[in-house]
Design a protein around this nucleic acid. Structure first.
Lengths: 204, 204
DNA sequence: CTTTAAATCTTGACAGTGTCAACATAGCCT
DNA sequence: AGGCTATGTTGACACTGTCAAGATTTAAAG
């Protein structure tokens, strides 16, 4: 009764679970997360989490949502650095995106992976945070098109899908360890940036 | 004893398992595959598969390997169509790649997903088939560079990682249903192809 | 205050899963 | 014919997510 962890009511179980789960995922990957072990770690019975999350997907969605909030903030910060030239910001964005994925591979996997997005397992709550994040990618692309950095021809949405797809693809090849490793990151990003910017150069 | 499925020795259990598993994956996804159900479907006890595959990963690796063989063949066929102009073949390759992923999302997920490639779960057998497939991507890229279709600047490997990354990324956004769906495929591929080819155009 | 309702947590249980050890059967080779 | 090896079976273990029923604490209402 005196020890906080042995009270019948934990007090702040929801955030305790989120915290512990986030740590676990970051260190050992999404697949290693077991609700039962998690509950035990937090010092609570195995079905207590169900009073705070509908199911395992609910927990995962909440963690992913937090990731999207953080990334959205980071992206906006880079994009709004008015002191830097658009091209410099573009390059920085690319490096930052891939760097973020490489630094938090497990979280990235959760945020953009099949677990949550396949079969409609994503919570409405998660969608509410993620979609504006996707939308922002399109806004940036439109801006870079208007700045003459990217080709003006394609629709912003279409082009955003391709440029974002490129970053996403590079990130996944890295994370999954497919024919690319961390020592290639900088060169890959530079190559990608150069490729995109060259594409618009001959249309001026 | 008269019925083939009730014999003590199945006769060709290995390929029966592969066949049933491939079908199951194609229709319901990798996650839905259970060794026990699979064994039951084939009409065999739950631990019989272990005499043909080291573990579940062994089975999955074998299926993925077959996928790589098929894809490698398809890719080579497209690439070696000497009658078509390099640019046409390039475009066709892009469409075919994304199309293949969209047509066999579950198999693509298995072939290039984290299940097999993370944590060294890929069999040596699988690696032996997959790596030449990756390598071929680099060879094609080198050829397209020499043809003036892609920028000559970057190293083939680096550029291949980026172009392949783009296709891989687009495929995954599609498969995972992230801000892109099948109706966008053609336009996305065209945009990507145009983007890459424009990049080299102003260096002639 | 006291009573009632809601939020929270616990134990018991169920249907799954992959995997292994020990045992049974069939086919092949000497 | 005998024995080795490949193949298949049952029993068991340690997990997993999830739910129902009951216990306990807190908050709200009378």
């Amino acid at each position: 009764m005196d020890q906080a962890q042995q009270r019948y009511h934990h007090g702040d179980l929801r955030s305790a679970l989120l915290h512990a789960a986030t740590k676990r995922i970051d260190e050992h990957g999404v697949d290693s997360l077991s609700l039962r072990k998690l509950a035990e770690d937090v010092g609570v019975s195995r079905s207590a989490p169900y009073h705070h999350f509908a199911d395992k997907n609910g927990l995962l969605s909440a963690i992913a949502a937090e990731g999207f909030r953080q990334w959205h903030h980071t992206a906006r910060t880079i994009f709004e650095q008015q002191t830097l030239a658009p091209s410099a910001r573009f390059r920085q964005f690319i490096h930052e995106y891939v760097g973020y994925a490489a630094d938090h591979p497990q979280l990235y996997e959760l945020m953009f992976g099949r677990i949550l997005w396949q079969a409609q397992s994503a919570t409405d709550d998660l969608k509410a945070v993620a979609y504006p994040c996707f939308q922002f990618q399109v806004e940036m692309t439109r801006y870079w098109q208007e700045s003459g950095l990217l080709p003006a021809g394609p629709e912003p949405l279409r082009l955003a899908q391709v440029t974002w797809g490129t970053l996403h693809g590079i990130a996944r090849l890295l994370i999954d360890g497919i024919y690319a490793d961390r020592s290639h990151i900088e060169q890959m990003c530079d190559t990608a940036a150069q490729l995109f910017m060259q594409a618009s150069a001959n249309h001026e």
